[in-house]
């Protein structure tokens, strides 16, 4: 029983790592209607930006998160404005493919600047706390709290600010939004900044938990997709629910499936979900 509970607990912690970039991915999808594969690079860029601030200026986790958000957000906007925007008329699929190319470029920019070595944040690492048979890391609790804080901020932004409302309006119906006098281009830029910035925040959370290198984002890409599809593409609460579902499923699966197939769990989850409930747990439409 405690084995099961521990696995679920581990899953929740894995889930929080995935949830933040998954929100970024799904937000971009909701507004711009294309799946951005460059999300992996935004995660990496954010992780490196945070690392840079941490090791050069001794920044703590919170300032590192803020810097990562800004840098990754800027990278996202630069990529969109510099490369992707002109391709929008060619269709979502073309843009999606271009994001793969953009991802390759950004990944190699970080490699060019920082090399392939793993970089760890200069932060103390603490052993887990124990409750009866269960263990949980103080760092993970912090990560969970930070992730919840970030998510709360995102929800508040979407619900209460002008930009947030405009984003939701564009996501719901772009023509209607235009009629209401909302400029879709400005909304697109805001979304990109928010989405890529969140991916960057996820990169810092990931790097604080592990370490950062040019492939760090690519390694979690599939799990992020799985979370977003599971929750329903384009649904932000869905991405959160999906991230926890994938996290828990991955950890639980270790009790039954060889550990080396862990990456396949997300894929199996996507296939099952698409077969039986294509719109995902909280999504609205899929076809």
């Amino acid at each position: 029983m405690s084995v099961l509970l521990q696995a679920i607990l581990n899953g929740v912690m894995t889930g929080t790592l995935i949830a933040v970039p998954a929100i970024g991915f799904t937000a971009i999808f909701a507004v711009l209607r294309y799946p951005s594969f460059a999300i992996a690079a935004y995660v990496t860029v954010g992780g490196f930006a945070g690392w840079f601030a941490n090791s050069l200026w001794g920044a703590g986790v919170l300032p590192a998160l803020a810097i990562a958000f800004l840098v990754a957000g800027a990278a996202g906007v630069a990529t969109e404005e510099g490369a992707l925007r002109r391709l929008r008329p060619a269709g979502a699929l073309t843009v999606a493919i271009a994001t793969i190319a953009a991802n390759l470029i950004l990944e190699n920019v970080t490699r060019f600047l920082f090399g392939n070595d793993l970089r760890g944040y200069d932060l103390p690492l603490r052993p887990d706390l124990r409750f009866a048979d269960l263990r949980i890391g103080p760092q993970q609790i912090e990560n969970v709290l930070l992730a919840i804080l970030v998510m709360a901020a995102v929800f508040a932004f979407l619900r209460f600010t002008r930009y947030g409302k405009a984003m939701r309006a564009v996501a719901d119906n772009i023509d209607l939004a235009r009629l209401k006098g909302i400029d879709p281009q400005r909304v697109a830029v805001t979304t990109l900044f928010l989405g890529a910035g969140l991916a960057g925040v996820g990169g810092v959370l990931l790097a604080v938990d592990t370490s950062i290198d040019p492939l760090a984002g690519a390694r979690i890409l599939l799990t992020v997709f799985a979370a977003a599809v599971l929750g329903g593409l384009g649904s932000i609460p869905g991405a959160v629910v999906g991230a926890f579902a994938v996290g828990i499923a991955e950890e639980l699966s270790l009790l039954a499936v060889p550990a080396t197939y862990r990456s396949a769990i997300g894929f199996a989850a996507i296939l099952l979900m698409l077969t039986f409930r294509p719109r995902g747990i909280l999504g609205e439409r899929a076809s």
Partner: peptide
Amino acid sequence: SLIYDDKKPSYRSEVDE
């Protein structure tokens, strides 16, 4: 012995095993 997937951001459950 345990064979793990080398692309994961954490190995908590593997460590439990």
